[in-house]
């Protein structure tokens, strides 16, 4: 088992210095992700443009393991400025990258999200990597609420 596949430098960097960290007062939607059995929590905030088509800003806050926090941080970096349609496509691809039997085709611009591909070799940790993405999906689905989503059933 090669630990560095799980904890790559970029992942550790994002875990220790998360980007886009904090609340977003102007958020148009948010959702909470919670894996109670691990104690991982993230809240993802998105601010869409007036047409509701583009992610103008995205932030998160939370606490948890290196994988959950780094994955969410990387997600926010990637999705800022993307359209909702692109974000949904990335979300689906990311999910497949973690859980599908065969690796998906990576869409253009998916880029360094692929760093997390190694997590699929650690089945216990897949839910850590998908937590922020599940919260994003919930937020983009227009279901802002304080009822957290979970990824413990991945």
């Amino acid at each position: 088992m090669n630990l560095d596949e799980l904890y790559q430098t970029v992942i550790l960097d994002h875990a220790q210095r998360p980007r886009n960290y904090g609340e977003l007062p102007q958020a148009t939607a948010f959702a909470e992700g919670n894996n109670p059995s691990c104690g991982d929590e993230v809240t993802v905030y998105v601010k869409l443009d007036a047409n509701g088509e583009k992610i103008e800003d995205i932030k998160f806050k939370g606490a948890g393991c290196a994988i959950s926090q780094a994955s969410t941080s990387l997600m926010t970096v990637k999705l800022k400025g993307k359209t909702v349609a692109e974000a949904s496509k990335f979300e689906k691809t990311f999910h497949d990258m973690m859980t599908a039997v065969t690796l998906p085709e990576y869409p253009q611009g998916f880029g360094d999200l692929q760093i997390l591909e190694g997590v699929r070799k650690f089945p216990q940790r897949v839910k850590c990597a998908t937590l922020g993405w599940n919260a994003l999906k919930q937020a983009l689905g227009g279901n802002s609420s304080h009822d957290p989503v979970t990824s413990e059933n991945e």
């Binding site: 904890y7 104690g39 393991c65 290196a66 650690f122 940790r125």
Partner: peptide, 23 residues
């Protein structure tokens, strides 16, 4: 400090040390 229990347990495992992490 600064390291989640699951990360501690994951890395301890690579040294052959079986711990428990979580709640």
């Amino acid at each position: 400090d600064g390291v989640h229990a699951h990360d501690v347990v994951e890395i301890a495992n690579t040294y052959g040390v079986a711990l428990r992490g979580g709640h």
